[in-house]
Design a protein around this nucleic acid. Structure first.
Lengths: 215, 215
DNA sequence: TTTTGTTTGTAACCTTTTTCACAAATACAC
DNA sequence: GTGTATTTGTGAAAAAGGTTACAAACAAAA
């Protein structure tokens, strides 16, 4: 078992493995080898073994891994055995869409509050979740033990929102504003930038078109 | 100038550079050096130069890059000089949120149609965009020259939706369903998997908490 | 014209990530 | 038991990605 720093690429894959194992569990598999797992879900068996090896020796040589046991280990490793309280800042279309995104609702991530600075939105509800005035952010973070924040505001104000989040003591932030943000301290920020994804997609599109022209 | 295959990491950065240049243009800068660009936007100057070098020699030694000229080059490289017609499949909250996401509306990506299989949604409009029956997908792709598809349906049916998209001849697909999809042929698929991002975030959160306990 | 200062483009180097390959461990058949 | 078939865990190799460092190119001042 390695004790090195775990890369984000690894933790991302752990999440994938977890999903695969859940699928296998539903199908009733008791054990699975890294090779079967890899073939079934188009992964690399050596990488699976190496990723898992970062956290312990979960497998049995000649047998493989016990599906349920490994699933439980991964859940624990990823911190999915504890509930997380999520706040979404920005109650526009994206923010409200995220508020009942199944990834948030179906798991141990609970969206407990939406925040906005727009008077006309404050006080309304999206499903069970109330939209609060951003001014009360710090207070509600404390009250509801919010530990994850999602930024779903326009790019122009995203940095100031992040600072508010950081000041409130939140350590995990997901950013949907199409702009890179500067982080203070040991806060973990993940940016999902749709503009970058789209424009990058556009590049590959133009490549295909050009090569077709040359045929 | 290199002629190697361009990595996705590079095209992602090109999109970032483009954004930076647009910002500089608004501020009225005529030229910029890779060093100034890097310092201003927290990038690496050598990497900027290397990324650009994949596509030509755009700079002038001793001067830097002409902002507007480089901007135009990047737009061309990324295929952003042509309009793209986007279809969103799945007219739930996420699909409709994406339909008027500014990244789609504000640029040369035009959302021209939403698709769903739910009778109650078909025929309605989200902003200017009509929700069509998924059965008419291929027909409308042809009529409206749709070249980008966005999957915003539940994971369980995402693969079958992708196959429909592929059959209709679309080469660029963005997937928001939290599941990896198998691509046929030369279709470019980008998956934005919020579950993976969230669970990965959860890992780092549990790390922070554990190390605090040990203090 | 020459010198000085700036900045690109890139070769060489370093780091990270992925893949390969195999000894060690286990199960199971005989 | 012994032998055969699996499969893990992990070094070592390969590939991919990022950084450093500097010659070559150019601008501007002297």
């Amino acid at each position: 078992m390695k004790v090195e720093k775990i890369s984000e690429l690894t933790t991302n894959r752990l999440s994938v493995y977890l999903r695969c194992l859940n699928e296998l569990l539903v199908e009733g598999s008791r054990t699975v080898s890294s090779d079967k797992l890899a073939k079934r879900f188009h992964l690399n068996s050596a990488q699976i073994r190496k990723d898992l090896a970062c956290f312990g020796e979960f497998g049995v040589r000649g047998v493989g891994y016990y599906v349920e046991e490994l699933r439980d280990h991964l859940q624990k490793i990823l911190g999915l055995n504890k509930k997380h309280q999520v706040a979404i800042i920005g109650a526009g279309r994206l923010g409200t869409a995220l508020a009942d995104y199944y990834g948030f609702t179906q798991t141990n991530f609970d969206v407990v509050a939406l925040f906005d600075n727009n008077e006309s939105r404050i006080g309304k509800k999206v499903g069970d979740v109330e939209i609060f005035d951003i001014k009360n952010f710090a207070k509600l973070v404390k009250r509801d033990k919010i530990d994850v924040a999602v930024i779903a505001v326009p790019a122009a104000i995203a940095q100031s929102v992040l600072e508010r989040i950081t000041k409130a003591g939140i350590k995990a932030v997901m950013n949907f504003a199409p702009t890179p943000l500067q982080v203070e301290g040991d806060v973990k920020l993940k940016t999902v930038d749709l503009t970058i994804s789209l424009e990058s997609l556009s590049y590959f599109l133009s490549q295909t078109n050009n090569s077709n022209e040359n045929n």
